[in-house]
Amino acid sequence: MAASTFQETTSTATAGSGRNLVVVDNLVMHFPLTQGIIFQRQVGAVRAVDGISFFVEKGETLGLVGESGCGKSTTGRALLQLYEPTGGSVRFDGTELTTLKGESLRKMRRRMQMIFQDPYASLNPRMTVGDIIGEPIEVHHLAAGRKKQDRVQELLKVVGLNPYFTNRYPHEFSGGQRQRIGVARALAVEPDFIVCDEPISALDVSIRAQIVNLLEELQGKFNLTYLFIAHDLSVVRHISDRVAVMYLGKIVELADRKELYDHPLHPYTQALLSAVPIPDPKIEAKRRRIILTGDVPSPVNPPSGCRFHTRCWKAQKICSEVDPEFIEHSARHWAACHFPG
Protein backbone atom coordinates (compact mmCIF):
# COMPACT_ATOMS: atom_id res chain seq x y z
CA MET A 1 0.00 0.00 0.00
CA ALA A 2 2.69 2.38 1.04
CA ALA A 3 4.75 1.30 -1.88
CA SER A 4 2.05 2.12 -4.37
CA THR A 5 2.10 5.80 -3.62
CA PHE A 6 5.82 5.75 -3.91
CA GLN A 7 5.38 3.83 -7.11
CA GLU A 8 3.00 6.42 -8.55
CA THR A 9 5.47 9.20 -8.02
CA THR A 10 8.48 7.34 -9.28
CA SER A 11 6.99 5.31 -12.10
CA THR A 12 7.15 8.17 -14.59
CA ALA A 13 10.77 8.79 -13.81
CA THR A 14 11.58 5.12 -13.91
CA ALA A 15 9.86 3.99 -17.07
CA GLY A 16 11.66 5.49 -20.01
CA SER A 17 14.62 7.57 -19.00
CA GLY A 18 16.83 4.78 -17.69
CA ARG A 19 18.37 7.10 -15.13
CA ASN A 20 17.71 4.61 -12.40
CA LEU A 21 20.19 1.79 -12.17
CA VAL A 22 18.43 -0.05 -9.38
CA VAL A 23 14.72 0.03 -8.64
CA VAL A 24 13.52 -1.78 -5.55
CA ASP A 25 9.81 -2.28 -5.19
CA ASN A 26 8.13 -3.50 -2.03
CA LEU A 27 11.08 -5.69 -1.11
CA VAL A 28 10.33 -8.11 1.71
CA MET A 29 12.89 -10.26 3.48
CA HIS A 30 11.64 -12.47 6.29
CA PHE A 31 13.78 -15.06 8.02
CA PRO A 32 11.64 -17.93 9.25
CA LEU A 33 11.95 -19.03 12.86
CA THR A 34 11.54 -22.77 13.06
CA GLN A 35 11.03 -25.35 15.75
CA GLY A 36 11.36 -29.10 15.79
CA ILE A 37 14.17 -31.51 15.06
CA ILE A 38 13.04 -33.55 12.10
CA PHE A 39 9.87 -31.84 10.96
CA GLN A 40 10.64 -28.18 11.27
CA ARG A 41 7.61 -26.01 11.39
CA GLN A 42 7.65 -22.28 11.17
CA VAL A 43 6.68 -20.54 14.38
CA GLY A 44 7.29 -16.99 13.26
CA ALA A 45 9.60 -14.81 11.24
CA VAL A 46 12.17 -12.14 11.74
CA ARG A 47 10.75 -9.41 9.57
CA ALA A 48 14.13 -7.90 8.80
CA VAL A 49 12.97 -6.00 5.74
CA ASP A 50 9.25 -5.48 5.48
CA GLY A 51 8.21 -3.90 2.24
CA ILE A 52 10.60 -1.18 1.17
CA SER A 53 10.84 0.69 -2.11
CA PHE A 54 13.56 2.95 -3.38
CA PHE A 55 15.64 3.59 -6.43
CA VAL A 56 19.29 4.31 -7.02
CA GLU A 57 20.22 6.63 -9.84
CA LYS A 58 23.17 5.99 -12.10
CA GLY A 59 26.37 7.48 -10.73
CA GLU A 60 24.95 8.57 -7.40
CA THR A 61 25.60 7.47 -3.85
CA LEU A 62 22.53 6.56 -1.92
CA GLY A 63 23.17 6.47 1.80
CA LEU A 64 21.16 4.00 3.84
CA VAL A 65 21.24 4.75 7.56
CA GLY A 66 19.64 3.20 10.57
CA GLU A 67 20.51 1.59 13.86
CA SER A 68 21.67 -1.96 14.25
CA GLY A 69 18.93 -4.45 13.53
CA CYS A 70 16.91 -2.08 11.37
CA GLY A 71 17.46 -4.24 8.30
CA LYS A 72 19.86 -2.06 6.37
CA SER A 73 22.49 -4.73 5.81
CA THR A 74 19.78 -7.26 4.96
CA THR A 75 18.48 -4.82 2.37
CA GLY A 76 21.89 -4.67 0.72
CA ARG A 77 22.23 -8.44 0.68
CA ALA A 78 18.69 -9.11 -0.52
CA LEU A 79 19.23 -6.55 -3.25
CA LEU A 80 22.30 -8.42 -4.46
CA GLN A 81 20.38 -11.70 -4.18
CA LEU A 82 22.77 -13.01 -1.55
CA TYR A 83 19.56 -13.75 0.28
CA GLU A 84 16.53 -14.91 -1.64
CA PRO A 85 13.95 -12.17 -1.04
CA THR A 86 10.62 -13.27 0.41
CA GLY A 87 8.76 -10.88 -1.85
CA GLY A 88 8.92 -7.79 -3.99
CA SER A 89 11.07 -6.97 -6.95
CA VAL A 90 14.56 -5.71 -7.59
CA ARG A 91 15.26 -4.43 -11.07
CA PHE A 92 18.83 -3.82 -12.07
CA ASP A 93 19.26 -1.83 -15.24
CA GLY A 94 15.91 -3.14 -16.44
CA THR A 95 16.50 -6.79 -15.51
CA GLU A 96 14.40 -8.37 -12.79
CA LEU A 97 16.86 -10.02 -10.41
CA THR A 98 14.53 -11.93 -8.09
CA THR A 99 13.55 -14.44 -10.77
CA LEU A 100 17.09 -15.02 -12.06
CA LYS A 101 18.63 -18.36 -11.25
CA GLY A 102 21.95 -20.14 -11.59
CA GLU A 103 24.11 -19.10 -14.48
CA SER A 104 22.21 -15.97 -15.48
CA LEU A 105 22.36 -14.69 -11.91
CA ARG A 106 26.05 -15.47 -11.76
CA LYS A 107 26.56 -13.41 -14.90
CA MET A 108 24.69 -10.48 -13.37
CA ARG A 109 26.97 -10.59 -10.33
CA ARG A 110 29.68 -9.19 -12.54
CA ARG A 111 27.85 -5.91 -12.60
CA MET A 112 27.08 -5.54 -8.90
CA GLN A 113 29.52 -6.04 -6.08
CA MET A 114 29.79 -5.64 -2.36
CA ILE A 115 32.32 -4.23 0.08
CA PHE A 116 31.98 -5.74 3.52
CA GLN A 117 32.06 -4.32 6.97
CA ASP A 118 34.67 -6.40 8.68
CA PRO A 119 37.98 -6.41 6.84
CA TYR A 120 39.16 -9.18 9.16
CA ALA A 121 36.31 -11.55 8.35
CA SER A 122 35.73 -10.74 4.70
CA LEU A 123 39.05 -12.05 3.39
CA ASN A 124 39.72 -15.79 3.36
CA PRO A 125 42.69 -16.18 5.73
CA ARG A 126 44.03 -19.17 3.82
CA MET A 127 44.29 -17.41 0.47
CA THR A 128 46.95 -15.01 -0.74
CA VAL A 129 46.00 -11.50 -1.70
CA GLY A 130 46.62 -12.42 -5.33
CA ASP A 131 44.20 -15.34 -5.10
CA ILE A 132 41.59 -13.25 -3.33
CA ILE A 133 41.61 -10.49 -5.92
CA GLY A 134 42.11 -12.96 -8.74
CA GLU A 135 39.15 -15.12 -7.78
CA PRO A 136 36.42 -13.00 -9.38
CA ILE A 137 38.57 -12.71 -12.49
CA GLU A 138 38.85 -16.49 -12.59
CA VAL A 139 35.19 -17.12 -11.83
CA HIS A 140 34.09 -14.90 -14.69
CA HIS A 141 36.89 -16.01 -17.02
CA LEU A 142 38.08 -12.44 -17.54
CA ALA A 143 41.76 -13.23 -17.76
CA ALA A 144 44.17 -16.02 -17.02
CA GLY A 145 47.84 -16.65 -16.35
CA ARG A 146 50.16 -13.72 -16.84
CA LYS A 147 47.31 -11.42 -17.80
CA LYS A 148 45.45 -12.19 -14.60
CA GLN A 149 48.59 -11.45 -12.59
CA ASP A 150 48.96 -8.12 -14.34
CA ARG A 151 45.36 -7.26 -13.69
CA VAL A 152 45.69 -8.10 -9.99
CA GLN A 153 48.76 -5.92 -9.70
CA GLU A 154 47.01 -3.09 -11.47
CA LEU A 155 44.06 -3.37 -9.08
CA LEU A 156 46.38 -3.25 -6.09
CA LYS A 157 47.89 -0.07 -7.46
CA VAL A 158 44.44 1.43 -8.02
CA VAL A 159 43.52 0.98 -4.36
CA GLY A 160 46.85 2.35 -3.16
CA LEU A 161 48.69 -0.83 -2.24
CA ASN A 162 52.06 -2.10 -3.30
CA PRO A 163 51.56 -4.30 -6.41
CA TYR A 164 54.17 -6.74 -5.14
CA PHE A 165 51.94 -7.78 -2.27
CA THR A 166 50.21 -10.51 -4.28
CA ASN A 167 51.88 -13.37 -2.42
CA ARG A 168 51.01 -12.05 0.99
CA TYR A 169 48.28 -13.31 3.28
CA PRO A 170 45.53 -11.10 4.73
CA HIS A 171 46.73 -11.38 8.32
CA GLU A 172 49.90 -9.57 7.35
CA PHE A 173 47.98 -6.37 6.71
CA SER A 174 46.40 -3.72 8.89
CA GLY A 175 42.65 -3.14 8.92
CA GLY A 176 42.75 -0.26 6.50
CA GLN A 177 44.94 -2.14 4.06
CA ARG A 178 42.66 -5.15 4.22
CA GLN A 179 39.69 -2.98 3.44
CA ARG A 180 41.62 -1.78 0.40
CA ILE A 181 42.06 -5.40 -0.65
CA GLY A 182 38.30 -5.87 -0.26
CA VAL A 183 37.75 -2.86 -2.50
CA ALA A 184 40.15 -4.24 -5.08
CA ARG A 185 38.27 -7.54 -5.11
CA ALA A 186 35.00 -5.72 -5.72
CA LEU A 187 36.56 -3.71 -8.54
CA ALA A 188 38.08 -6.76 -10.21
CA VAL A 189 34.97 -7.50 -12.29
CA GLU A 190 34.50 -3.86 -13.33
CA PRO A 191 31.06 -3.53 -11.73
CA ASP A 192 28.57 -0.71 -12.22
CA PHE A 193 27.10 -0.87 -8.78
CA ILE A 194 28.68 -1.50 -5.39
CA VAL A 195 26.90 -2.05 -2.10
CA CYS A 196 29.19 -0.71 0.62
CA ASP A 197 28.07 -2.35 3.84
CA GLU A 198 29.49 -0.25 6.69
CA PRO A 199 32.89 -0.25 5.01
CA ILE A 200 34.56 1.99 7.56
CA SER A 201 32.90 1.29 10.89
CA ALA A 202 35.44 -1.37 11.85
CA LEU A 203 38.39 0.90 11.11
CA ASP A 204 40.35 3.31 13.24
CA VAL A 205 39.42 6.97 13.11
CA SER A 206 42.53 8.13 11.33
CA ILE A 207 42.17 5.37 8.72
CA ARG A 208 38.47 5.94 7.97
CA ALA A 209 39.06 9.06 5.95
CA GLN A 210 41.57 7.18 3.79
CA ILE A 211 38.93 4.66 2.76
CA VAL A 212 36.19 7.25 2.32
CA ASN A 213 38.47 9.24 0.04
CA LEU A 214 39.41 6.11 -1.87
CA LEU A 215 35.76 5.25 -2.45
CA GLU A 216 35.02 8.77 -3.65
CA GLU A 217 38.03 8.74 -5.93
CA LEU A 218 37.06 5.39 -7.46
CA GLN A 219 33.50 6.52 -8.00
CA GLY A 220 34.73 9.32 -10.22
CA LYS A 221 37.29 7.18 -11.98
CA PHE A 222 35.12 4.19 -12.79
CA ASN A 223 31.70 5.80 -12.91
CA LEU A 224 30.39 3.74 -10.02
CA THR A 225 27.03 3.82 -8.31
CA TYR A 226 27.05 3.18 -4.57
CA LEU A 227 24.56 2.07 -2.02
CA PHE A 228 26.37 3.19 1.11
CA ILE A 229 25.07 1.48 4.22
CA ALA A 230 26.16 2.97 7.54
CA HIS A 231 25.02 3.87 11.01
CA ASP A 232 27.22 6.93 11.18
CA LEU A 233 25.18 9.88 9.99
CA SER A 234 28.16 12.17 9.67
CA VAL A 235 29.87 9.88 7.19
CA VAL A 236 26.67 9.29 5.26
CA ARG A 237 26.15 13.00 5.02
CA HIS A 238 29.65 13.38 3.73
CA ILE A 239 29.54 10.75 1.02
CA SER A 240 25.90 10.54 -0.12
CA ASP A 241 23.88 12.37 -2.70
CA ARG A 242 20.63 11.10 -1.29
CA VAL A 243 19.88 9.46 2.03
CA ALA A 244 17.32 6.89 3.11
CA VAL A 245 16.58 6.33 6.79
CA MET A 246 15.47 2.90 7.95
CA TYR A 247 13.69 1.92 11.12
CA LEU A 248 12.69 -1.63 11.97
CA GLY A 249 12.49 -2.99 8.44
CA LYS A 250 10.92 0.06 6.82
CA ILE A 251 12.30 3.11 5.08
CA VAL A 252 10.81 6.03 7.00
CA GLU A 253 12.37 8.88 5.07
CA LEU A 254 14.17 9.40 1.77
CA ALA A 255 15.46 12.69 0.45
CA ASP A 256 18.37 14.52 -1.08
CA ARG A 257 21.20 14.89 1.36
CA LYS A 258 20.93 18.57 2.09
CA GLU A 259 17.16 18.45 2.30
CA LEU A 260 17.20 15.54 4.70
CA TYR A 261 19.77 17.01 7.05
CA ASP A 262 18.32 20.51 6.96
CA HIS A 263 14.63 19.66 7.02
CA PRO A 264 14.09 16.21 8.41
CA LEU A 265 10.38 15.35 8.38
CA HIS A 266 10.21 12.09 10.26
CA PRO A 267 10.56 12.29 14.06
CA TYR A 268 12.94 9.35 13.99
CA THR A 269 15.26 11.15 11.58
CA GLN A 270 15.09 14.21 13.80
CA ALA A 271 15.98 12.20 16.88
CA LEU A 272 18.77 10.44 15.06
CA LEU A 273 20.30 13.68 13.85
CA SER A 274 20.08 15.31 17.25
CA ALA A 275 21.78 12.34 18.89
CA VAL A 276 24.97 12.49 16.83
CA PRO A 277 27.71 14.13 18.87
CA ILE A 278 29.48 16.99 17.13
CA PRO A 279 33.17 17.46 17.79
CA ASP A 280 32.80 21.03 18.95
CA PRO A 281 32.18 21.76 22.62
CA LYS A 282 30.59 25.14 21.90
CA ILE A 283 27.94 23.61 19.69
CA GLU A 284 27.50 20.67 22.01
CA ALA A 285 26.84 23.00 24.93
CA LYS A 286 24.04 24.70 23.03
CA ARG A 287 22.43 21.72 21.37
CA ARG A 288 19.13 20.32 22.45
CA ARG A 289 18.97 16.60 22.20
CA ILE A 290 15.88 14.57 21.53
CA ILE A 291 16.51 11.61 23.76
CA LEU A 292 14.39 8.69 22.67
CA THR A 293 13.11 6.44 25.39
CA GLY A 294 13.39 2.70 25.28
CA ASP A 295 14.88 0.36 22.77
CA VAL A 296 14.12 -0.68 19.23
CA PRO A 297 11.31 -3.28 19.40
CA SER A 298 11.89 -6.79 18.14
CA PRO A 299 11.53 -7.31 14.39
CA VAL A 300 9.83 -10.63 15.15
CA ASN A 301 6.86 -8.82 16.54
CA PRO A 302 6.91 -5.23 15.34
CA PRO A 303 4.44 -2.68 16.72
CA SER A 304 1.18 -2.18 14.90
CA GLY A 305 0.60 0.89 12.81
CA CYS A 306 3.63 3.13 12.60
CA ARG A 307 6.54 1.10 13.91
CA PHE A 308 8.08 4.09 15.58
CA HIS A 309 5.04 5.01 17.64
CA THR A 310 6.29 3.23 20.77
CA ARG A 311 9.21 5.66 21.05
CA CYS A 312 7.77 8.71 19.34
CA TRP A 313 6.96 11.86 21.28
CA LYS A 314 4.41 12.93 18.68
CA ALA A 315 2.45 9.69 18.67
CA GLN A 316 -1.34 9.90 18.63
CA LYS A 317 -4.01 7.25 18.53
CA ILE A 318 -3.87 6.92 14.77
CA CYS A 319 -0.16 6.10 14.86
CA SER A 320 -0.72 2.79 16.58
CA GLU A 321 -3.55 1.88 14.25
CA VAL A 322 -2.65 2.92 10.73
CA ASP A 323 0.68 2.35 9.04
CA PRO A 324 1.50 5.73 7.52
CA GLU A 325 2.00 5.85 3.78
CA PHE A 326 5.32 6.72 2.21
CA ILE A 327 4.41 10.03 0.62
CA GLU A 328 6.34 12.64 -1.34
CA HIS A 329 6.00 15.74 0.82
CA SER A 330 8.13 18.02 -1.30
CA ALA A 331 10.08 17.34 -4.47
CA ARG A 332 12.07 14.11 -4.06
CA HIS A 333 11.45 14.06 -0.33
CA TRP A 334 9.47 11.08 0.88
CA ALA A 335 8.50 10.28 4.43
CA ALA A 336 6.16 7.88 6.16
CA CYS A 337 4.63 9.76 9.07
CA HIS A 338 1.18 10.93 10.12
CA PHE A 339 2.57 14.11 11.63
CA PRO A 340 5.63 15.04 9.60
CA GLY A 341 7.80 18.10 10.12
Partner: peptide
Amino acid sequence: EFVEAARSIGAGPVRIMTRHLLP
Protein backbone atom coordinates in the same frame (compact mmCIF):
# COMPACT_ATOMS: atom_id res chain seq x y z
CA GLU B 1 31.79 -12.60 5.36
CA PHE B 2 34.49 -14.08 3.16
CA VAL B 3 32.13 -16.87 2.13
CA GLU B 4 29.44 -14.32 1.44
CA ALA B 5 32.03 -12.37 -0.52
CA ALA B 6 32.77 -15.45 -2.61
CA ARG B 7 29.08 -15.86 -3.34
CA SER B 8 28.77 -12.21 -4.23
CA ILE B 9 31.49 -12.47 -6.86
CA GLY B 10 29.60 -15.37 -8.41
CA ALA B 11 31.59 -18.36 -7.19
CA GLY B 12 29.75 -21.69 -7.47
CA PRO B 13 29.10 -24.20 -4.65
CA VAL B 14 32.03 -26.48 -5.53
CA ARG B 15 34.46 -23.60 -5.52
CA ILE B 16 33.12 -22.25 -2.25
CA MET B 17 33.36 -25.65 -0.61
CA THR B 18 36.84 -26.53 -1.83
CA ARG B 19 38.54 -23.14 -1.79
CA HIS B 20 36.87 -21.42 1.13
CA LEU B 21 35.10 -23.78 3.49
CA LEU B 22 37.39 -26.80 3.47
CA PRO B 23 40.77 -25.06 3.92
